[in-house]
Simulated scan of single mutants.
Amino acid sequence: MQTDIDKFMVDQLEISLENKLDAEELFKDKKSLAEAIFFARDIINEPANIKTPQTYSEKILEYLEPLGIEVTIIGEREMKNLGMGALLGVGQGSQNESKLVVMKYDGADDKASPIAFVGKGVTFDTGGISLKPSANMGEMKYDMAGSAAVVGSLIALARRKAVVNVVGVVGLVENMPSGNAQRPGDIVTTMSKKTVEVLDTDAEGRLVLADAICYVQEKFRPRCVIDLATLTGAIVIALGKTYAGCFANNDELANQLIAAGNKVNEKLWRMPLHKDFSEMIKSDVADIANINTQAKGANSSTAAHFIEHFVKEDVAWAHLDIAGVAYSKTVSSISSKGAVGYGVSLLNQFIKDYYEEQ
């Protein structure tokens, strides 16, 4: 019996092209990008009992090393020796050891200073002692979407053999409540030697980024630093599911990222940094607090200012808060429910347009 759909089945399709080689190269480029996005989506969608910092770091090593990317996995003992008290404090309540994964892609022959991508990789976020409400907590398996964007972008660049040097650093932790968990009011010392008063253990992503950003600057002296994180609920209130928030200390870098995002439909909206917001994270007992201590509001901006404290003065930096765009509860024309893989196309286009040697 022939159904309606059988009437429209195609046995063979022929496409005529003026330049077959150009089309094949374009398809190859698009295919490599798609595979990178699919990697990001798949790892974000993994449940947290499977996606621990250990298994996630092993997956990165397994996938990236064959692409010619140098992967280094740093464990808790070495991080302690490096002074990463902020990152380690977030993960100390978990039985799963925290990891810092460093991915080095050298696509340019001149060994120029790399572009640095840094990602928040909280494989599950309960909020710690500052426990989140139980409703929708299962979605917190997505709290490592920033790290997935970093890993995915490295995959895309390596697969198309981009002529550029890029280093990616992701801090992988699990934020859990336990008898050994970090407490509100604890003070931690970061790799930069600055101290942080942890007033809310659910404001943990910025602590992970603080040490990861410090590490990439000390180790690689990058030309610029771009971090990505599902950082604040406030950015969702401000921008919904349409834009990610872009905070930057450099107008040129911000404009480049926004332009690249517009090309690939991963939109960014420039958000404000201001000395008034920086004042809001002052602490009476440490260099800074990890949340706003003085007034209500501006929570995305105060979070960005927290991260900025760990960026060297001469380094161009942008922080992309992707909390509203990292996953979708509905089916779209190009993605099912769940992880979107936001950031992979954006970073790939950014490199292609502004930093890749021709």
Score class of each variant (00 low, 15 high):
153 S>F: 03
65 E>M: 11
105 Y>A: 10
346 L>G: 04
286 A>E: 12
153 S>A: 11
211 D>H: 06
283 S>K: 12
21 L>K: 15
97 E>P: 05
272 P>T: 06
271 M>D: 03
331 V>W: 00
128 G>L: 00
41 R>T: 00
234 A>K: 05
129 I>L: 03
353 D>I: 05
123 T>P: 08
306 F>N: 03
137 M>A: 01
36 A>L: 10
334 I>A: 04
286 A>L: 10
92 Q>G: 00
10 V>D: 06
157 L>E: 07
35 E>I: 02
36 A>C: 07
249 N>R: 02
5 I>R: 15
139 E>M: 13
218 E>C: 07
95 Q>W: 01
332 S>F: 05
268 L>E: 06
67 L>G: 01
155 I>L: 15
357 E>R: 13
291 I>V: 15
347 L>N: 11
270 R>W: 01
36 A>I: 08
169 V>T: 09
210 A>Y: 03
296 K>S: 15
176 M>Y: 07
137 M>I: 00
250 N>S: 13
30 K>F: 12
74 I>L: 12
151 V>Y: 04
297 G>P: 09
224 C>N: 05
72 T>D: 14
63 Y>P: 00
331 V>P: 02
349 Q>K: 09
174 E>H: 02
152 G>M: 04
31 K>V: 12
269 W>H: 14
25 E>C: 08
121 G>D: 10
3 T>I: 03
354 Y>V: 09
344 V>R: 12
122 V>C: 13
279 E>C: 09
304 A>I: 04
95 Q>P: 01
38 F>C: 12
340 V>E: 07
96 N>H: 14
77 R>T: 12
240 G>R: 08
54 Q>S: 09
46 E>I: 14
17 L>K: 08
255 N>P: 02
148 A>L: 10
317 W>S: 08
200 D>Y: 05
58 E>C: 06
217 Q>K: 01
234 A>F: 07
46 E>C: 14
122 V>L: 11
57 S>T: 08
245 G>V: 00
79 M>K: 00
8 F>Q: 11
85 G>Y: 00
203 A>Y: 02
63 Y>A: 11
308 E>D: 14
315 V>D: 06
81 N>E: 14
3 T>D: 11
91 G>F: 03
204 E>M: 01
62 E>H: 09
171 G>L: 06
265 N>S: 13
58 E>Q: 14
152 G>P: 07
72 T>E: 15
31 K>L: 15
245 G>R: 01
307 I>T: 10
189 T>H: 05
62 E>L: 10
252 E>A: 15
80 K>Y: 05
129 I>C: 03
277 F>L: 03
83 G>Y: 08
217 Q>I: 08
27 F>Q: 12
7 K>Q: 14
212 A>C: 15
94 S>M: 03
286 A>Q: 10
54 Q>R: 09
144 M>R: 14
31 K>T: 13
250 N>W: 01
142 Y>G: 00
45 N>R: 04
205 G>Y: 06
139 E>G: 14
32 S>C: 08
94 S>N: 03
149 A>W: 05
69 I>Q: 05
60 I>N: 02
282 K>C: 10
246 C>M: 07
169 V>P: 06
167 V>P: 09
285 V>Q: 09
260 A>Q: 02
203 A>I: 07
59 K>V: 12
215 Y>L: 10
91 G>H: 06
87 L>D: 03
292 N>E: 04
187 I>D: 11
110 D>T: 14
305 H>L: 01
348 N>C: 12
238 A>Q: 10
59 K>I: 15
113 S>T: 01
150 V>N: 10
148 A>W: 12
113 S>Q: 09
